[in-house]
């Protein structure tokens, strides 16, 4: 049976492809402003905070991703508030927040006597067990992001270039920053089903960093980042099915390979910016 026949035959593979595709598009779009503003570590931070949410959800017997969603979005808004007040001018304080978030998760898991199987599924991803309910939960998020980026394109672009000047032009910088980071946090939580919490930041950073080496416009960078993300999940998923390796790892490795290829081509003068 060929790879394509496998995907046509099994619903779990179709769900995996659809979920990872939606997440790649979301993370690709959100990653560009994050990387340009040197906030890539925030994605990593949200992933660690969401681990605490997953652990609390498992401990309380609630739906872990739901609890993680609430905990991570609230954590993201608190971190944005601290960032706006200059608390994260270096990366040290962010590292402290990230570590404490993860430690809360670790402690909660140990208090409950450990739920190793469940926790591993969130830490390393469990793409082939994505349910149609989870896929449907991703769609409103994708629709919200599409509307936000379409309506607020010039404002997001301005904030990314110069937050202070955007504020002076009447752009509600605080609200847009909070909305973007809340969307990023929600994306991180849902994308953890695709590649796992430990690798989820890579979905935000690698496609954006790849596209930024070629793009000459902000819109081009966003579309390019989404395309690189999509290529990574399709090829990664195909590789995972073909050679029976972890899908999350394969997706990130493909993304890393595309990044290395573009970097090499750029250094060799084969790829140029305008």
């Amino acid at each position: 049976m060929t790879g394509l026949e496998l995907f046509l035959e099994y619903e779990f593979l179709q769900l995996a492809l659809a979920a990872s595709g939606v997440m790649a598009l979301l993370a690709g779009a959100l990653g560009v402003p994050l990387v340009l503003r040197e906030m890539a570590m925030f994605g990593h931070g949200f992933a660690h905070v969401s681990y605490a949410g997953v652990a609390l959800g498992l401990l309380a017997g609630l739906y872990p991703l739901g609890v993680a969603l609430v905990v991570t979005v609230v954590g993201a808004l608190v971190m944005e508030r601290l960032r706006a007040r200059g608390a994260f001018s270096g990366d040290t304080r962010l590292a402290v927040v990230v570590s404490v978030g993860f430690a809360i998760g670790v402690t909660t898991v140990s208090l409950a006597g450990g739920f190793t199987t469940h926790v591993h599924a969130y830490l390393f991803g469990s793409l082939f067990s994505v349910t149609s309910t989870e896929l449907w939960a991703m769609l409103p998020l994708a629709a919200t992001l599409l509307v936000a980026f379409t309506l607020l394109y010039k404002e997001i672009f301005y904030i990314t270039l110069d937050e202070e000047a955007a504020h002076l032009s009447g752009v509600p910088v605080g609200w847009i920053n909070a909305a973007l980071l809340a969307l990023t946090a929600a994306t991180i939580v849902l994308a953890s089903r695709v590649v796992g919490l430990l690798l989820v930041a890579a979905l935000l950073v690698i496609p954006a960093a790849t596209a930024l080496q070629m793009a000459t416009s902000f819109k081009g960078a966003i579309l390019g980042s989404m395309a690189v993300g999509l290529v990574s999940v399709v090829l990664g998923l195909a590789a995972a099915v073909s050679v029976d390796v972890a899908a999350g790892g394969a997706i990130v490795l493909v993304g890393g390979a595309v990044f290395a290829l573009v970097t090499g081509a750029r250094r060799a003068g084969l790829v140029r910016r305008g």
Partner: peptide, 24 residues
């Protein structure tokens, strides 16, 4: 490496004039 053309940067000077949400 900021991905913006010179025209796109100049256009940002019109944000206050154009207002929130409205396109160029």
């Amino acid at each position: 490496n900021f991905p913006a053309s010179v025209l796109e940067v100049a256009l940002l000077g019109r944000v206050a004039e154009r207002g929130l949400v409205n396109r160029w």
